[in-house]
Simulated assay, not measured.
Amino acid sequence: MTHTHQHTHHHGDSGHHPGHDRVGHHEHSDGGQAEILDLDAEVLAEHIASITAWLPLQSEPRRIVDLGCGTGAGTFALFERFPDAHVTAVDTSAGHLQLLREKARARGIEGRVRTVQADLDAEHWPDLGTPDLVWASASMHHMAAPARALRSVRELLAPGGLFAVVELAGFPRFLPAHAPESQSGLEERAHAATDSFHAEHVPHRGADWGPMLTAAGFTVEDERTITVDIDGARSEAIGRYAYGSLQRIRGVAAPALSPEDLAALDELLDTNSPHSLLRREDLAVRTERTVWAVRRA
């Protein structure tokens, strides 16, 4: 097994063509979440493209399943890489799947996309065919019973097929450590304030999936950790991405934050404030993602 640590830095380059932790992934009508997923896809497009290019495939996949597809970040990245494939996109959210279908129509590829609304924690999955590639980006850690879901993937996969699990440690960081000036280190304290919530609701976030995949009957063929560091000057979308992300974190962190921290966070989230996130020029997107590429043992 090879461990590749790719440290990719972008500073001020322009142009962008996708997860991250989907708080409330099982909510069915969350326009704010859909917007975050779309921004995630836009901002991190180059990194998802690098993962699809890296996949250790034996041949080009014709049938792909995207588990926990959200609004289609992975689905369309996979089409970029494998333009002749057919993709079955699976999610719990009817709203996300509707957005994905609209994007497929706009790209003229609706005939090669099938959407399936399904709860992947269910004991029996709907018929998803026999895919050559199963892709699960920032979705497996939401499973209540991940071992059962992994066994379901194993049964689904075509002989010789590849299962790619992409996971992130959590929400990206956006602010410099000293920011904001009134409450230095606020972002890390806000993340720490969400720890007990995530420990209860998404206990597998940040897990090492290698042993779980092995226990489910897979052989880990390769593993790769990618460091993401994108300068905020690269795209105005990064400000909106930071705003939406910290807004969602506030909803969970608020009860555990000091009044001073909460006031400083609210000032960052006040679009009319001169200190608004959307007016800062020192933002960046910093995160890590790990990919496991596995086959049936």
Rank of each mutant, 00 (worst) to 15 (best):
A147K: 08
E155H: 13
H142G: 15
S137C: 14
P131N: 05
A149M: 10
V134A: 04
L133V: 01
S152V: 00
S139E: 08
L156G: 02
R148N: 08
A149W: 05
P131M: 05
R151P: 00
D132L: 02
L133S: 03
H142R: 13
V134N: 01
A158V: 06
W135Q: 03
A145I: 04
P159V: 10
G161P: 09
L156Q: 09
R151D: 06
A136L: 12
T130H: 11
G161S: 11
P131H: 05
P159F: 08
G161C: 12
A147D: 15
G160I: 08
R151N: 06
D132K: 05
L150S: 05
W135Y: 08
R148H: 13
S152H: 14
A158N: 09
A149T: 12
D132W: 01
E155M: 07
P159E: 14
G161D: 11
E155T: 12
P146Q: 10
R154S: 12
M140T: 15
P146F: 07
L156I: 01
A158H: 12
S137W: 07
R151L: 08
P159G: 12
S152L: 09
P131K: 01
H141G: 04
P159L: 09
G160M: 09
L162Q: 08
L156S: 00
E155Q: 13
W135T: 02
V153W: 03
V134R: 04
L150R: 11
L156H: 01
A145Q: 15
D132V: 00
S139L: 09
E155K: 13
L156W: 03
F163Q: 13
A145G: 03
P131D: 06
L162Y: 09
L156Y: 00
L133M: 01
S152C: 09
P159M: 11
H141Y: 15
L157G: 05
E155I: 00
H142C: 13
P146N: 10
A145Y: 07
F163E: 11
R151I: 04
S152G: 13
F163P: 13
P146D: 07
S137K: 11
S137H: 14
S139D: 09
A136F: 05
P131T: 07
A149I: 05
S152T: 05
A147W: 07
T130L: 08
